[in-house]
Amino acid sequence: MKKAIAWGCLVPTRRSLIGYEAATRKVLEHLNIDTVDIPNETCCAPFWMQSLDLTTSIAMAARNLAKAEEMGLDLLTPCSGCFHSYKRVNHVLEKYPDMREKVDDILKGVGLKYEGTVEARHVVDFLYTDIGVDELQKRSTRDLSSISIGLRYGCHMLKPHELLNIEYSERPTFADELIEQFGVNSVQYAGRHRCCGGLLRGVQDDLADRVLHERLVDANEAGVDGIVTVCSLCHLQHDMGQRTIKRKFAMEDIDLPVLHFPQLLALGFGYSPEELGLNYHTVKTDKLVAKVMGGGRR
């Protein structure tokens, strides 16, 4: 099976996020999925860019889709922002013929053409729907039943479900199933599906802090060993933002490591923490990793 893959802007360039790329590559390799990176990938123009100009944003996102179309491949992405953006392109081009005409012209001007045939898939949904929990279980080698985590699906992989077509977002279970097969205790807690305020960062920083504060209080009260995120913005908020919140809201007792979803999968497949970039996160992951490594083999 071969897929084009778009990594997004943040994942390959931020210290605490490159582990997301490393782990995703390992997981896909482990499952024998061939991938080819979108050549010279550019920003997918997600929601914040759509805020400035929707037409430009649709054309920008279509640029990467056109590259996948040239290769005749469907597109995988681990970034929820990219996923949301690519799904919106196909939807808008199909529903609004005037917009399609405009975007076709814009792309033609830079030597591109996009017919609208590329299906964008989120890596997590792809693993669940196309590969399946059973297949993952067959290939897992490490017992992870010693850890309790708070899994965050994030907003842009699921909402709105009419557009993204994975699962209704109020009580999703598919990503939990993918990690529960390793024995992980995925704790249900209040606020697990609430927004982290990531898209307010850099625009309304105080507000981004206050929303994040509520999320960290939620997770802290749930008594989990760590948080696992799907969305790169959720990770930046919970991991890098945790220091700020600790200071600003006097949350002295907070110490929650934040893992990327595929990092947990790769740990379950027997990869070492070092090859997954777990030492590059802002909040130290040592204690959680020690618990994982103490869990033994299956």
Partner: peptide
């Protein structure tokens, strides 16, 4: 990244 292509899109759109 294909910055030139991007600039063309941003100008035109």
């Amino acid at each position: 990244p294909a910055v030139k292509q991007l600039e063309g899109i941003m100008q035109a759109a």
